[in-house]
Amino acid sequence: MAITHAHASGMGGMRVAGDLVARVQMARGMKLAQAKAYVAEKLAVDVSELTDPIVMTEVRTDLGLGVVTPLPGVPKGIEAKFNIARVLDIDINCVKRFRERTRF
């Protein structure tokens, strides 16, 4: 059922920009249209490109935001989340905690 929803109406997660729009919605309480516009502006793409996996894989690779197929040397996991926080200009709780714990 989760897969059916993902195909029928979901943004597509980290294959595209679904996780990024979700982060902005969660961090800033933005409604969907506003959150999509915010992310599109920060990534310098059109709103329509947020759900295009071809465009978004390239954008995510260039900005180090994490991609589905983790190539060598590409930021993964918490590394990618540091970049997401910076690019989207939002606080990510676990990134903040990582900094505190490592005194980074």
Binding site: H5, H7, G12, G13
Partner: peptide, 21 residues
């Protein structure tokens, strides 16, 4: 068999009890 939204109208998905499922 399958119907979907028009491109551009996709929404965020949240889940309950995901790992449990």
């Amino acid at each position: 068999k399958f119907i979907s939204v028009e491109p551009g109208r996709e929404v965020i998905l949240t889940y309950d009890a995901a790992t449990l499922k």
